[in-house]
Each structure stands twice: as C-alpha cells, then as structure tokens.
Computed example of a mutant assay.
Amino acid sequence: MRDPEPSQSSPAPVSAGQIRHFRYYDLVMAAFVAILLLSNIIGASKLSTVGSVTFGAGILFFPLSYVIGDVLTEVYGYARARRVIWTGFAAMIFMAVMSWVVVAMPADRDWGCAGADLLLLKTAGEGTGPICQATYESVFGSTWRIVVASITAFWAGEFVNSYVLARMKLWTRGKHLWSRTIGSTIFGQAFDSLLFYPIAFLGIWPTHLVVTVMITNWLMKVGWEAVLTPVTYAVVDLLKRLEGVDVYDEGTDFNPFGAKV
C-alpha cells in the first residue's frame, strides 16, 4: 500500500480509494461539462474545408474535453473520472431534450432575428417568424441520429479513454505521461469517431465523405492531443501539487456502471 501522506517536495502516490476530498475536482468537472456541451451545440454538425482538408468544425474545441478527461483520470483516478463522464452524459441528454422542446415551440409571427429583415419579402407578408424559426432550427435543431450519435460516441469514447489511461499508468508505474495521454486518445477517439459519423451521417452524406471525415477527425484529434501535451503536463503537475496526491487505480472497479468512488 502506498503512503497516503504527501511529502513537501512532491505529491504522494496513493491508491484511488484512499482519498475522499479534493479542492479543485468540482472545478475541473465544471470545465469538462461546459466544453463538452458548447462543442456539441456549436460545432457538431458543421463541415468545414480548409485547403483540401474537410473536417467537422467541432474538432477545434472538442478535443479539449479529452485533455480534461486525461487530467481527471491522471490526477483523480478512474472512479472519479467515471463520475464526471456520467455527469456529462446526463447533461448531454438534458441538452438534447431542451433543444427539442425549444425548437418545437411555435414561433411568434413578429419574432425578429439577425438577417430576418433582409429576407422579409420572401415570406409574402407572413412576418419574420418563419424565417427566424428556420434559422433557429438550422443551428439548434438536430436530428435524432445526431443526438444518439453524439451521446453514444461520447459515452464510449470517454470511458475507453479513461480506462486505457488508468491501466497504462499502472503499467508504466506513473512514468511517461505523454505515452498515456496520446495512447488513450488514439483508442478513445477511434471509438468516438467510429460511432459518431456512421450513426449520424451514413446514408445522408456519401459514404466516402463519411469515411474521409471520420478518419480525418480521428487523426486531427490525436494530433491535437500531441500538440497539447505540454499543456496537459503543466495542468497535471499543478493539480497534483495543489491536491498533494498522485492517484493510482490499484484495486479499482473499472466497470463503467460501478458506483463506488
């Protein structure tokens, strides 16, 4: 059993079940959920092409949730990361229900929105409401396939990411953090991309486009993780010093449906 008392010079290695209270865990959880929801609301279904590369626009910010997921598992352990993943999962379901209800509500005839006045003549006297409703739906309205794809891919990808990182930390005895963050992202993002794009767009987009975007996004996510490795190192080191611990998942129940923390 590792010594639970932190030293003054560096965080003390401890088993996951030994520590119950953390100072910054809730803040990291809040950051994770916020980035998760915002990246799904704003960038999930938009395609962008830069040069000859086509990718989902959400790729620019969504990988930050994976970086925070790595930080959670590395600093606080798999069980507490599991709790955050389920919190994000619940938040995504609420976001989907709220979006469906708000989008489905009838629009006021004179509801004004950006750009509506320019298109007013096309409504033949029906007011700006229909234009604003269509615009609103194009931004916040998602098909059931995109909703299911987002929630499913997130759940599977995050749990794979956290599991691989926690296991690799035991295998490497806490050394070579870069190998754990990049290695877990390779597997976690592979599950995420393999689930999201086929579920959301196969049969809607041409098959070759689905495959292209799926592979491109996976490579870009892994690339982002590699680029952000120095940031991950800095955040992990800071949190370990502030919390005074270095959690190892010895004896942890890796069942994603487990409740023990």
Rank of each mutant, 00 (worst) to 15 (best):
P6W: 01
Q8M: 12
R20D: 07
R20W: 03
A31K: 07
A34Q: 04
L38A: 13
I41R: 08
A44Q: 13
L60I: 13
F61E: 11
S65F: 07
V67A: 14
V71Y: 00
L72P: 01
R83C: 05
W86T: 08
F94T: 15
W100K: 08
W111V: 09
G112C: 01
G112W: 06
A114S: 14
L121W: 07
K122G: 14
T123K: 10
G125Q: 01
T128S: 10
P130G: 02
C132R: 01
A134P: 02
T135E: 06
S138M: 09
V139E: 01
R145F: 13
T152E: 04
A153N: 06
W155Y: 14
W155I: 08
A156N: 07
G157E: 11
G157Q: 06
F159R: 03
A166S: 12
K169Y: 01
R173Q: 15
G174E: 12
W178G: 07
S184M: 08
P198I: 13
I199G: 02
L202T: 07
T212D: 15
V213I: 05
M214I: 00
W218E: 01
W218G: 00
V227D: 01
P230H: 01
V231W: 07
D237Q: 05
R241D: 03
V245S: 04
Y248N: 08
N255E: 02
G258S: 12
